[in-house]
Design a protein around this nucleic acid. Structure first.
Length: 414
RNA sequence: GUGGCCAUGGUGAAGCGGUUAACACUUACGACUGUGACUCGUACAUUCGAGGGUUCAAUCCCCUCUGGCCACCCCA
């Protein structure tokens, strides 16, 4: 048996890479339009970075990280998400000293040791963006609007924006306590998982799909009712700005996030088309993260989207670049002639293809058709002698005779 | 970590105890010795994930292993 890829690690084959590029290019275009700059950070970090940011007790840190001890006996980890590394770089290079307001985006692979399933892989890719240094809900709204714009740009209007506020270290503990108290009274009605969640992550119980739990938690207290004044005003601001710009959203007070560093605003772009992997993009505010990592007390907000999930939503649509011209040749002398012409045309940015190994004319024509070439020219002895050839429009068979000169070919293709 | 389903060629797949292992797509070549698409012809799995077992006989039955998918958990 030949060696295969690691479980949960996928190859992006040529048939799919066009779709990936389409997604990545749209993200770069939209993000840069919004004033974001790319930041490239390593895919491995010291393990401690993730423990301190994501949270020691989260599933990600507890059981999903690809961690190992390197030859220098340092514990290192393949990044399970992007924000921690970006903020580490932000602090390490003191980017805040120049300007506390940074708008950064990144893209690349992330790693989580989970059981693979639809839309979930051990190596997966995220495109994310972060704004630091702005407390005002305008930053929240800008990030959300940009995310929505991205989805519109790639032609997906299906994912819906849901927002919530998780409060801050001031008001969240009280809510958590109230929720636990509420759930404990109904513990008999809860499923096994939710009983466990009671002690690990009570918020999760609100998100449970078991009918009995949905019923039992129907009257549970809402985070939004227990926000402190500051958080409440902030959340109102976010909603107000979204409404101002006509961005449609819904409020989901039961939305739960998996990372400990989130404060106040959290959000998801959700879809019903991906089975249980409903979140295509998600994020939130993390006002305490930067100082937690040893930086100044600077707030932040950002999101990450799962490229595999976006690609899945885009479906099978092909993103290919058919050649402008295919040159079919009849002998080795003609092949050399065509090769030289191809070289000149390529310098001009014309997409040209030809046969490399003396296939029959029929084969070459078939290939021109298969590649979706706009034009095909047959080059034989007489064409080389006269310097002129017939250019056939593959779509309708129309033919144009012209000199095999760069300028004339450009003319035909224009 | 838990559960369910499934493993036949490059792909989608039929076959379910003895077959030349269907059919379709793809690919290659050809049907005008210089023109694609449509049509037609020819070729393309000594072999049915791996290893054992049952049987005169196994792709079809049994066991083990490996792999994949989907769901739970969790998450982008």
């Amino acid at each position: 048996m030949a060696i295969t890829a690691i479980k949960g690690f996928n190859d992006i084959l040529p048939a799919e890479s066009g779709r990936w590029q389409h997604i990545e290019q749209a993200a770069r275009r939209v993000f840069e339009l919004n004033g974001f700059s790319e930041i490239r950070v390593p895919i491995m970090e010291k393990t401690d970075l993730f423990c301190r940011s994501i949270g020691d007790a989260t599933d990600i840190v507890e059981k999903e990280m690809y961690s190992f001890v390197d030859k220098g006996e340092n514990s290192v980890t393949l990044r399970p998400e992007g924000t921690a590394g970006v903020m580490r770089a932000f602090i390490e290079h003191k980017l805040y000293a120049q300007d506390p307001v940074a708008k950064l985006y990144y893209l690349g692979p992330m790693f989580r040791y989970e059981r693979p399933q639809k839309g979930r892989y051990r190596q997966f890719h995220q495109i994310g963006a972060e704004i630091t240094g702005v407390h005002d809900p305008l930053a929240d709204a800008q990030v959300l609007n940009m995310l929505v714009q991205f989805f519109r740009e790639i032609g997906l209007d299906e994912p819906q924006l849901q927002v919530n506020s998780l409060g801050c270290p001031e008001c969240r503990p009280a809510y958590r306590a109230a929720l636990i108290e509420f759930l404990e009274k109904r513990v008999d009605a809860l499923c096994e998982d939710c009983r466990r969640r009671l002690s690990t992550n009570p918020l999760r119980a609100l998100d449970c799909k078991v009918p009995g739990c949905i019923e039992a938690t129907a009257g549970a207290p809402s985070v939004l009712d227990s926000l402190c004044t500051g958080c409440d005003e902030h959340f109102s601001g976010v909603k107000r700005y979204l409404e101002l710009t006509g961005t449609s959203y819904s409020i989901n007070p039961r939305m739960v996030r998996g990372l400990d560093y989130y404060t106040r605003t959290t959000f998801e772009m959700v879809t019903t088309l991906l089975g249980s992997q409903s979140a295509v993009a998600a994020g939130g505010r993390y006002d305490g993260l930067i100082s937690q990592l040893g930086g100044p007390a600077i707030p932040g907000i950002g999101f990450a989207m799962g490229v595999e999930r976006v690609a899945l939503l885009l479906g099978e649509k092909a993103f290919t670049r058919p050649p402008d011209l295919f040159m079919a040749t009849l002998g080795s002398g003609e092949r050399a002639f065509a090769f030289n012409l191809m070289h000149k045309l390529l310098q001009k940015g014309i997409r040209v293809e030809m046969d490399y190994e003396g296939k029959s004319l029929k084969s070459q024509m078939r290939r021109a058709d298969k590649l979706g070439a706009r034009y095909c020219a047959v080059i034989g002895e007489s064409e080389v002698a006269s310097g002129r050839a017939v250019f056939k429009r593959m779509a309708d068979g129309g033919q144009v005779e012209a000199a095999m000169e760069v300028s004339e070919v450009l003319e035909i293709l224009s």
